[in-house]
Every structure is written in structure tokens, then in C-alpha cells.
Design a protein around this nucleic acid. Structure first.
Lengths: 185, 185
DNA sequence: ACAGGTTTAGACAGACCAGTCTAAATTAAA
DNA sequence: TTTAATTTAGACTGGTCTGTCTAAACCTGT
């Protein structure tokens, strides 16, 4: 159906622009121009810009899980899958433009009243946390840290590394994060 | 001088609003209205909104160092000063509204062409990194990790914790970060 | 052929934005 | 007192923004 074509194209373009420029900095006009889609079509598929952002974040997280599954499936050593999580992020960042995590960036761009979107982001972040927890639990690591503590550590170092990526536009901090993790598993 | 009064009031108000709402989301109109200052006076002291942001970030980092010095001075055990760095951030966050680090938030709100500001933020971030490095080097920690690795770890966990603060509006992640650090020093 | 869902181009409204300008008032310094 | 620096209120420009609307075209399934 054409509906899907247009919807996907809007999500693709908006996602790229939201990620590169930020949500507030990206206007509807730019989105529809770059997607080569009429204004009316945009509002036919999305009732507002905020709804577009929510849909984009959903798809982003979904794609993240699918990509992580595929990436980790190639790693046989369950312990190496923990550092694999960060390697996956490094790969993604290099592919997508070194601007940090879309979720974290979206959160930073929220306005005072966007409580619905903020809650949405919290849920998605929690999902990613749970994903890490599963990988850690199945890793058979050395238990220098508990499963919970190690999970927290991976998530925190990962987020910290992504912050560094957004600032410095390189993956140095993510690589440092992985070095630290590898010493504790 | 009144010049300073007005300038400080503008920096105070703008800083609070930039922090709570974000740079792009905060207009000149709101700043001058809440600071109760005339439009002309604003442009008498700052030539543009971007210049105001740069001045605000400079003052923010400066205050951060002054506050950190004062906070750490009360801690006699040099090792406890490392976790003290995070405790200081927790205190600050609770005081200032649990919206994460102003520097990281400003970076996330930059536009495509703001290379000057981006470079500015990099330098300030590096300064804070160096500050942490000094505290670590003087701590006499157990050397489970090298000085450099431990510094990286503190910075990354701290940034990760601040991301969590910005998303969840609590300091749980910063407290987790400190728990992890305390096990490795 | 027909109907309904989809897409187009573009005008439009209403609001906000950053920054400029004027002219008068206030303050500080000499 | 005179001069210069500072502050005020507010109009104004030119631009951008999201979202609405219209009227015509296009496609698709029946």
C-alpha cells in the first residue's frame, strides 16, 4: 500500500533529521520537503509533530532490539555478549552519525509540558535496561559484581559513553567503557 | 554598579530557564519578562542569545568548580573525595531541579551550525574531566584500575547517572554510580 | 464506471521568534 | 551642572513555526 510507503518515508526522514538536528530544531516544512511529500499527506498520517516523534521513538527502539539480536547472535561466548552490547552501539553510532543516543537526545529536547512524551521515553529506556539485564544474567560472568550491579554498570557506562559521542563526535568514550567492563566480567 | 546587577540577573534567569526548559525552548521574551528587564537592556549587555548561552555556560562551570572545591574541602579522606564528586552532583541536582547536567543538556540542544558553541562545550567538559583526574590522582586508591581508567570510569558513570537524572527526575542512577565506584577504590 | 481512500500543491491563520530602532527617562561620574 | 553611560517601554521588521483548509487529482478495489 502507498500508505505505508509514505508513512515509512516520513518516519525515515523525520528520524534522520530529529537525530541529526534535534526535535525542536527540525520543522515540519523541512521534513516534508526532504521526504518530497505534500503537507496534507503528513497530517493525513500524523495528527501532530509530537505524534510523529512518539512513532519515531517506538520504531527506533524496535529497530534497536532487532539489530542487537542480530549482532549478538553472531557472538557465541555469552560473556562476550556483554561487551558486544557496547560494540553494537559503537557500530550503530559510526553508521548513524556519532550524535549519541536518539532516546537521550529526544529527552533533552522536551519542553516543560511534554509529560506524555517523557513518560514514553522512560518506558522505552526501561525496556533497553531490561534487555541488558537479560544479556548479563545469561553471561556466566565472574560475579565480581552482582547481576544487578553489573547491569547498572553497563547501562551507566553505555549512557556516559554515548554522551561523550554526542559531544566529541567520536566513539572514544564508548571504547573506554568497554575496556572497563571487560576487566570486570 | 548596576551593570553587574542587571547582567547577573539576566544570567540567573536565563540560566534557570535554559536548564529547566532548554536553550531553544526558551525565548528572549520570557527571559526579560521573568528577569523584569527591558528588551533594550538585554541587547545592551549581550549581543545575541548565543552569547548569553556561552556566558551562562562559563559561569556554570566556574560555579561548579567553586562549589566542588568547597564540598570536597569538608572531606578529609582523600579516597572519599572520589565518591564525594558524585555526592556533590547529587546535592546539586537535588538543589537545582533534577534535570541533568546543564552542559550535556546544552550540547543536546545545539543546532547544525553551532560549531563555536559546540567547541566551547568540549573545552568546558575537558576541564571538568581534568578536575576529576586530579582528585583521583591524589586519592591513594587501591590501583585496581589505573588513575586514567578510574578517572574515565568516574566521568562515564557520572555522565550516565546524570542522564538517568534527566530522564527519571531522581538521583537513583547517581547513587548506583557511587556504589559501583566505592567497590573499586 | 463508481466510490472511497489517498495524495497533491499551495494558500492561509495565528502565534512566536530574534534582533533593531526610537525617544525618553534615569543614573553615575566628571 | 554637564556629560556620558545605562535603563526603560514598546513599536516594528522579517522571518519561522505548527496546524488548517480547499479543491483538484490520483489510485484502488468493487
Amino acid at each position: 500500500m502507498k500508505e505505508n510507503n509514505l508513512r515509512q518515508r516520513l518516519l525515515d526522514t523525520a528520524g534522520r533529521l530529529f537525530y541529526e538536528q534535534g526535535y525542536k530544531q527540525t520543522g515540519i516544512n523541512q521534513i516534508i520537503e526532504e521526504a518530497a511529500i505534500a503537507r496534507g499527506s503528513f497530517y493525513y498520517h500524523f495528527s501532530s509533530k509530537a505524534e510523529l516523534l512518539a512513532a519515531y521513538l517506538d520504531r527506533f527502539v524496535n529497530d534497536w532490539f532487532v539489530g542487537a539480536d542480530a549482532y549478538l547472535a553472531k557472538i557465541t561466548d555469552p560473556k562476550a555478549r556483554i561487551t558486544g552490547l557496547i560494540d553494537y552501539r559503537i557500530t550503530n553510532q559510526k553508521k548513524r552519525g556519532l550524535s549519541g543516543c536518539a532516546l537521550l537526545k529526544a529527552n533533552a529536547g522536551l519542553e516543560a509540558g511534554d509529560d506524555e512524551l517523557r513518560q514514553h521515553i522512560r518506558i522505552l529506556k526501561q525496556k533497553m535496561h531490561d534487555y541488558v539485564a537479560k544479556v548479563v544474567a545469561a553471561s556466566g560472568h565472574r560475579q565480581i559484581l552482582s547481576n544487578e550491579a553489573l547491569t547498572d554498570m553497563v547501562v551507566l557506562l553505555s549512557d556516559g559513553g554515548l554522551v561523550g559521542t554526542a559531544i566529541y563526535h567520536n566513539t572514544n568514550d564508548l571504547e573506554k567503557a568497554n575496556l572497563l567492563i571487560s576487566q570486570l566480567i
